[in-house]
């Protein structure tokens, strides 16, 4: 089992729901300080978005963030260099589109991520059917490959993805690109299907924009991912303090959620 999954499983065993914020790397010169602020305020892992020119599953807010970061000259190498100054103990997971790694060279990319302290990768346009080469490249460097399940995934596909994913299983809360709001309802069926196959942690993302949505999603899963709302805050000029407050409000909502309800019976409704 890869290191990332060991860590996320023990987090779950400790009874804590994971809070995973997404940052567009390089969006501002002090982006690594934003990451540190999020960790201070209670983030359990960080998604590091590596900008790609054609972010197919991202809505306008993240597109804007990615564009600005690219205009500032961000590259995989510059991100890894920035990460060397980051002092944090939480797991780091890269999120980008396949062409970034493919063009860099798969083994070289995996080695580069590992050397920068990244232990997992989410590549939304890399289907499990096409993932063999990337997976092989990651094994040597102990990088986990995280797959996304969607509300449209058939039970067969959820089974395939839940058994293939490493670290955690990313349950998309909505049939939409990032940045449209959601309640956790769309994700319930796939969470149940995933749990039936595997006891890998399941996190809900895509469409979680408010502390209330995060609380609700955390009640049916092992963690939540927050992207667009945070990127919007930073685009609007939010500083380290604002980021701490933002993450803190999500942390509080998750930690004060009522104990997990019998969601499996909910899912059968």
């Amino acid at each position: 089992m890869k290191l990332l999954e060991q860590q996320l499983r023990s987090l779950r065993s400790s009874g804590r729901k994971a809070l995973v914020p997404y940052f567009v790397a390089g969006l501002t010169p002090d982006w690594t300080q934003h990451v540190e602020a999020a960790v201070l305020a209670g983030a359990d892992a960080i998604e590091i978005g590596i900008p790609f020119s054609d972010p197919m599953i991202d809505g306008v807010v993240i597109q804007e963030g990615v564009l600005r970061s690219l205009e500032a000259g961000t590259t995989l190498d510059s991100i890894c260099k920035d990460l060397s100054s980051l002092s944090t103990h939480v797991p780091l997971v890269a999120m980008t589109y396949y062409n970034i790694f493919f063009h860099y060279g798969l083994e070289r990319a995996a080695g580069k991520l590992a050397a920068s302290g990244i232990t997992g990768a989410i590549v939304p346009d890399l289907t499990i059917e096409e993932s063999r080469e990337w997976h092989d490249a990651c094994d040597a460097d102990d990088i986990a490959t995280i797959f996304i399940v969607a509300p449209s995934s058939t039970p067969d596909r959820v089974a395939l993805l839940a058994s293939g994913t490493e670290g955690f299983c990313y349950a998309s809360a909505r049939m939409a690109v990032t940045g449209r709001s959601a309640d956790a309802v769309d994700a319930k069926r796939v969470i149940a299907d995933a749990r039936a196959i595997s006891d890998v942690p399941v996190y809900v993302g895509i469409g979680i924009g408010t502390p209330e949505q995060a609380r609700d999603a955390s009640m049916v899963s092992d963690g939540v991912i927050v992207g667009t709302a945070l990127v919007q805050l930073i685009l609007d000029g939010g500083d380290v303090r604002a980021i701490e407050d933002f993450i803190g409000s999500f942390r509080l909502a998750i930690d004060t959620a009522p104990a997990r309800s019998d969601f499996l019976s909910d899912a059968e409704e």
Binding site: M56, I57, Y98, P124, D125, L126, T127, E129, E130, F147, I148, V149, A150, P151, S152, S153, T154, R157, L161, S172, M175
Partner: peptide, 20 residues
């Protein structure tokens, strides 16, 4: 079977679109 023409082609889409 997976839509490759030599080394090219295939399917690189978000999971949400795979069933379609």
């Amino acid at each position: 079977a997976r839509g490759h023409f030599g080394e090219f082609g295939g399917r690189f889409v978000p999971e949400a679109l795979m069933p379609a």
